[in-house]
Design a protein around this nucleic acid. Structure first.
Lengths: 354, 354
DNA sequence: CTGAAAGCGCTTACAG
DNA sequence: CTGAAAGCGCTTACAG
């Protein structure tokens, strides 16, 4: 049994297709009786309107496209769910599309937007290929697509000219807070697990690194030094495996040359702790370790992770607000929102051993 | 700049819309010269065909719908990616749709299928509400939608009559293997972290529990006993939090009444280990713990987790095969495939203390 | 309140 | 190889 069409349902009910359409869309110009009759028949025969046909007619649907480029993460998924709920409050649906690594072109976005009459698009996480650097003209070409866009959890990556809105945690501030706290605890030799090339200045890890450097430069007088461990796997920057490999290599080559390690994120911290433990170093006694994100694992790992909690609820709420505003008042200038994260101290950090 | 239509592009090129259509779809009946000219113009003007219009005409697209009900997990996402690749090899696309908990009705699936002319649907993880039990008539009503369906990672949940195909790891076998191994190591007092109500006999955790019980009953002569810890949070069965709460409560009420704990999955094991550690018990010396799935965390946790690795590549490949077969030969009977997982022994298990 | 008709942007027989 | 035309299943002015 395949789907029944509006015409067939109209015949069954003995009305015109236009009447069925009005009943299904809950328009006011239908008499309650016919409406109920039609709805009942629709339920009985399993009629559901064809979205393609609907999309073709409607000038713009109350629908937003969420685009995740490359690997997904628990964080982005939670954000998706929060955002979905927020937008639903305003009658908007959110449709998730994954774009495989290697195909983050403007055309891909154009194709997605063209599938249905999306009112806007939210990028969950970074959009753009690593090898195309800052993609100077990505932003402009995205703008040409003609629907409002907001970058969620990253800055607008489109060449630094900020043509689109963005909402994210204050990555620089988080990196600063963690580093500052470690310095206050008395650490003088710190390390940071880099996430890629030094040229990727707009990456989330690079912003956190920026905060790390700022805190260190403020503490210059104290004799504090800050090392940057180069990433073992550029392509998998935020994984446990990358954290493990990065730290293992460093320890094998140089030994433990720091008393505190600021990691790019919680997953990297998990890998880093494992590498330290395997090399016989105790966390936090021999080396304090911090994460970023406050994933579920941060609470249940032993030692539990000192980290910066992403304000996911606020990020989702702000993203929804910015998106809806852009849809309703397209003339408004893009805004760059950065929300402060919360430092959570747990077992993985403490003062250096005497 | 909004999207250009096929008619506008046809005018630009000075050809008929039908010619443009043929060029865009790479049909053989177009001369290479006009085709190249049209493709160039399409690229220049950013033309991308409207998917809704296309969907409306085509009888069936080379597209499969992937449906995830309720919370997603790293496992399901990895499976999605593997499956996407497999289907792409055969020219099929895979579109992910999340169905929020509380709306897993047959109508929801009908609505999704109706959006585009999907050739089939794959359920990633369980489909159906917890409170509707086995949903006796879900299977039949899904069948009415008229496209082939396969359940991936769970059995066909539609009332036990197996109207649809399914592909999953051998959950019973995995539960059996883990339990059997613990018994062989000398454990005699075992525990299992339940994931919900005893009536949910088709849930993944219930199948693993089944394996646990079978191994125990085989070892009846040895004096081995098997406890079942009731789940702290029925709604979040597979989370770290649930593992933590479940074990914490049990320890608070009864103390450590087992020397080995078989957990429903890796995430639950992480929570369980934390609860044991906080209560002053050492893993594996005082209590061995096992997981299921072999997530990335299983390798990097300390102690690293003994677990059963999901054969994700084989599951994805088999799901693709079964799906494609069902699309091309709709008459073929549904098949229930179960693939053996691989027992991975790591640090979290060992013989009981003497 | 209801119906007949036009048209959204495509694809695909059917002619030429 | 190319074009003119019908039609996929809807929505929405426009009449009544």
């Amino acid at each position: 049994m395949s789907q029944i069409t509006i015409r067939e349902l109209a015949e069954i009910c003995g009305v015109a297709v236009s009447t069925v359409s009005r009943a299904m869309n809950d328009r006011s110009e239908v008499s309650p009786l016919t409406r109920d009759r039609i709805l009942a028949a629709a339920a009985e025969h399993g009629y559901v309107p064809n979205t393609s046909a609907r999309s073709l007619k409607i000038s713009t649907e109350k629908l937003v496209a969420a685009i995740i480029h490359g690997e997904t993460s628990p964080l982005l998924l939670e954000l998706f769910e929060l955002l979905e709920t927020r937008l639903a409050d305003h009658g908007y649906g959110l449709i998730l599309t994954r774009v495989p690594a290697g195909s983050a072109h403007p055309e891909t976005v154009a194709r997605i937007v063209n599938e249905r009459k999306y009112a806007g698009v939210v990028f969950l996480g970074r959009y753009g290929e690593d090898d195309q650097g800052e993609a100077p003209d990505l932003g402009r070409r995205l703008t040409q697509i003609g629907v409002p866009m907001v970058f969620c959890t990253t800055a607008d990556f489109s060449g630094g000219s900020w043509m689109h809105s963005s909402v994210s945690v204050d990555d620089r501030g988080g990196g600063y807070d963690l580093t500052r706290r470690l310095l206050d605890l008395g650490h003088r030799r710190l390390g940071f697990t880099s996430g890629g090339e030094a040229t990727d200045t707009q990456h989330v890890w690079a912003l956190r690194l920026d905060g790390y450097r700022r805190a260190l430069s403020e503490a210059r007088g104290s004799g504090a030094t800050g090392l940057v461990l180069s990433s073992a796997r550029p392509g998998a920057s935020y994984s446990m495996t990358n954290g493990y490999e990065t730290v293992r290599r460093h320890l094998a080559a140089n030994g433990l040359t720091f008393t505190a390690l600021v990691c790019t994120c919680d997953a990297v911290a998990v890998g880093a702790i494992r590498a330290l433990t395997e090399a016989g170093h105790r966390v936090p006694e021999d080396c304090a370790v911090t994460g970023f994100d406050d994933l579920e694992i941060a609470r249940y790992l032993t030692p539990s992770l000192t980290t910066v909690a992403q304000p996911l609820v606020e990020i989702a709420a702000t993203t929804a607000r910015v998106m809806l505003q852009a849809i309703e008042q397209p003339a408004v200038a893009p805004e760059q929102v950065s929300i402060q994260g919360r430092l959570v101290e747990r077992e993985s950090s403490g003062p250096p051993a005497a």
